[in-house]
Write a protein that binds this DNA or RNA. Sequence first.
RNA 1: GCGGGAGUAGUUCAGCUGGUUAGAACGCAGCCCUGUCACGGCUGAGGUCGCGGGUUCAAAUCCCGUCUCUCGCGCCA
Length: 612
Amino acid sequence: MHTYRTHTCGQLDKSHIDETVKLSGWVHKKRDHGGVLFIDLRDTYGLTQCVVDEESPLINEIDKWRNESVITIIGKVRARAEGTDNDKLSTGAIEVYISEAEMQSEADILPFQVAEDDGTGEDHRLKYRYLDLRREKMQKNIRLRNNVIRSIRERMYEQDFQEFQTPIMGASSPEGARDYLVPSRLHPGKFYALPQAPQQFKQLLMMSGFDKYFQIAPCFRDEDGRADRLAEFYQLDVEMSFVTQDEVFATLEPVLYNTFAQFSDFTGEKRTVTETPFPRITYKDAMLKYGSDKPDLRNPLEIVDVTSVFERDDVEFNAFKNVIKKGGVVRAIRAPGVGEQPRSFFDKLNSWAQSEGAPGLGYIIIESGAGKGPIAKFVPEAATDELKKAAALEDGDAVFFICDLERKAAKMAGMARDKICDAMDETGIKTRETGCYKFCWIVDYPMYDLDEHTAKIDFSHNPFSMPQGGLKALNTKDPLDILADQYDCVCNGFELASGAIRNHKPEIMEKAFGIAGYSLEVLEEKFGGMLNAMRYGAPPHGGIAYGIDRIVMILADEPNLREIYAFVMNGQYEDLMMGAPSEPNAEQLKELHLKLNLPKPKTESNEEKKRA
RNA sequence: GCGGGAGUAGUUCAGCUGGUUAGAACGCAGCCCUGUCACGGCUGAGGUCGCGGGUUCAAAUCCCGUCUCUCGCGCCA
């Protein structure tokens, strides 16, 4: 007989009755009835009920074994007593009558219960992650992660992509986030940067002639966290030679569609996935209609521009008119069928808008063809008719207004669109679609935009993107009017991927960076390796990078990324289990030629608490 | 850096219009129980109410400060 087990804890059924088996696993739960003791033995494959009764001398010993101890038992498989089958377990028709039992590793008193998901605080879960990971939900999530990555990898291989590894310690890459730096012992005062993405390497692989690259690549960005953002994360990084934007989409759409379709019932509810080809929305349209470049298309509400209505001479709403005079716009969101809602429905939305720094969220209700509500009196019949036409308003609808300078108005309207949708759902008017993964491409990003604070022209996205119209566009057009072959892939309001057709011509790169204020010297210093490579025959190429973690998070229907990583840092980017980051010792600092210049601590308690 | 929420037993929470000894569930220790699978029953241990200060005869509760976690903004694709 095997030292530890003949079967797993999820394996036994009626076909094994009368066999003597050996099982190893964790004591999941015990139920002690005095004369009979049940033990649920658990491993990653399932639970098996093991029994011992007072006829056995083992009962007193086993009864003392604490939950989460690791044990090995030998026993005979038998059918459960009539009427005591457990349909919830795959092994629910049988039990194992224990004849021998061995303690492998005793568990201390637990900091929290493993067998039940009692909402234990995240800091505890992360500190004792190995216990947290034993729980059913985490076991499932991590398995999903594994399966998703495997599925994606196989789909990429099917399309003849080669998988690469690229350096972790390298030079700064062109993404705009802060780098994590690693000091060099051999080169005093110099640092490696951890990759924000393998951007330059994958482009260089194209220039090396590999044609189709992919990697499940670790990426590092030193910016504050969010529920869907971590310091380190993984991307499905892809690059292809001699392709157009259409070909990149056609390559990745089936990978995403099939992967999502494959795992779309993970939560127990089968969800639909947008059929390919995914709809394409230009950046400009997205900002107008959804107020965001990552629109949640499950929300059917759309934004329209109604500036012209409020510009009319017969409309006397100066609160808007004055903003329009300063170059502002008015955006409207139709909320169908909310005309009957109580005043509190509108007041709540209004105070939400104020909490976001807007003066308010004006609205008009359409009743019997006419406008109603606090600002309706400023909008006469003819103007109301124009408004109805612009926003497709019908009796019983309300329309909400946002008025501000364009960029702010678009963003605010985007948030209001979401908030109104939620408010409608809350009142029982089902608005947001459920049970679906709604994909789209956002295309035609501007190559440049104006930095809000410095008013300088800067790259709006990836600086290596190909400007539409090439060098000619750079030479002749207003930089702010130039679009790039740059695209994002969006699902349910999450930006899943970002990519571009790259610029492969050194003269375009020089010009493009010049417009953004980078001199040739700076360009050579920062990206000289790649610029040089372009001078020796670079193929046209393009690619994309998907956030693997976000994909898994959405499929698992989890609210944050920490639920789909085995080991992960908290919101402050600390590893509570392993104690990272930690202070280097004096010897390490000396070897690295570093001296610390620390800010004064506000109080002592923080560090002391951490040490405790 | 800014804003919202949270911090009470090992864990999850209640208590918060100030007023006996701060409660419950799970867990833990002991006892009882032969068919449970959220087993059940009895007994018990376990608390600097995040920390510091203030108001008061009296503070978990009110006020001020501070720390930590979390969500969001800024930042970042």
